[in-house]
């Protein structure tokens, strides 16, 4: 089969990433991929991926091979790390700009640079939307050569002032509940005590929070 004239490696990486994201939602149908895909040359990309042994299409379903999964995982990791970098460190507010730039970066970021960003951010577990960031080798080694700029609240000593960067709740409703109490990205927060439960000061409000929940709030020291 002729290679599509407009098909680039970037498109293949992009499609692999899209299949991964569908998989996170428990979806794997080709038509679902088509509905959400932003790649213009999707069909050409899919057949090229089959040819390279990255994906399989059968009975209207698409699955990644081990090799394809490795590729997708790398892309998703870089994309989400880039998102965290933009929203938390650079404090870019425009969501669509963050997404557009992250899309470009995921294709140009080398493996070493991705791990460096990951360590710098304190090995974040999720992107600003709460979606999981696949772990890299640096996360497994937990390399902490530099103090992470962004770290979970439970690592801070009592008395530290910090600003909330992102929240990674393990349970569905927790994010909204914390939001309702004023625990949102951007809020200034002071750890008053850590034992037997966390006591946090947000402006004039004092909140008691379970240590497990405090570990899901990522902050930057101020």
């Amino acid at each position: 089969m002729m290679l599509h004239p407009d098909l680039a490696d970037q498109d293949i990486e992009e499609v692999a990433e899209e299949i991964w994201i569908l998989g996170e939602q428990g979806l794997d149908r080709v038509e679902e991929l088509r509905a959400s895909s932003e790649v213009g040359v999707l069909d050409a990309a899919l057949s090229e991926m089959e040819r390279r042994g990255l994906a399989r299409v059968a009975a209207g379903r698409v699955t990644l091979t081990n090799e394809g999964r490795e590729l997708a995982r790398r892309q998703v990791r870089r994309h989400r790390l880039a998102e965290v970098l933009f929203t938390t460190v650079l404090e870019v507010r425009d969501e669509s700009a963050v997404d557009r730039t992250a899309c470009v970066m995921e294709h140009v970021l080398g493996a070493g640079l991705a791990d460096a960003i990951c360590s710098f951010l304190g090995h974040p577990k999720a992107c600003p939307h709460g979606k999981p960031i696949p772990a890299g080798p640096c996360c497994r080694e937990l390399s902490q050569t530099i103090e992470p700029l962004v770290q979970p609240l439970d690592r801070l000593p009592a008395g530290t002032e910090s600003r909330i960067v992102y929240i990674v709740p393990r349970e569905r409703e927790r994010l909204s509940r914390l939001t309702n109490m004023g625990i949102v990205p951007g809020a200034r927060i002071r750890v008053q005590q850590k034992m037997p439960a966390f006591v946090l000061a947000l402006g004039a409000t004092t909140l008691a929070v379970d240590p497990a929940i405090a570990g899901e709030i990522y902050v930057k020291k101020v």
Binding site: E171, R174, R177, L178, M181, I183, A197, V199, T205, T206, L207, A208, V209, D210, I213
Partner: peptide, 12 residues
């Protein structure tokens, strides 16, 4: 079932 979150406001 599960346990709810411990997030409680401490009044002055």
């Amino acid at each position: 079932g599960r346990t709810g979150d411990f997030v409680l406001e401490l009044p002055p």
